[in-house]
Amino acid sequence: MKPLKLLGLITVLITGFFLIYGVSDMPNWGDKNAPASTHVSPYYIQRSQAETNAPNFVSAVLADYRGFDTLFETTVIFCAGIACMMLLRKEDDG
């Protein structure tokens, strides 16, 4: 094994060790009272049908509550398509 690859392996193992060390502070799998599930998501689950008439909470949050996010996400993938076109296309006749 080359020394550079060994250095990479050591870096990866150190990063993995710190992440595993941090796991002990995370909530258990399937915890109903996890911090991620108690702050704003009960509002979305309870109100989105009444406010946006969309039974799919994901669509309601994606397109209505976080519409600005999705707008620029769409712009990002549009820019990626434009970037691919500018990088790879050779001649352009209009």
Binding site: T52, N53, A63, D64
Partner: peptide, 12 residues
């Protein structure tokens, strides 16, 4: 709420 549902469909 129905109009907001139509808006969601439009942007989708």
């Amino acid at each position: 709420s129905v109009i907001r549902g139509i808006g969601i469909m439009g942007i989708e």
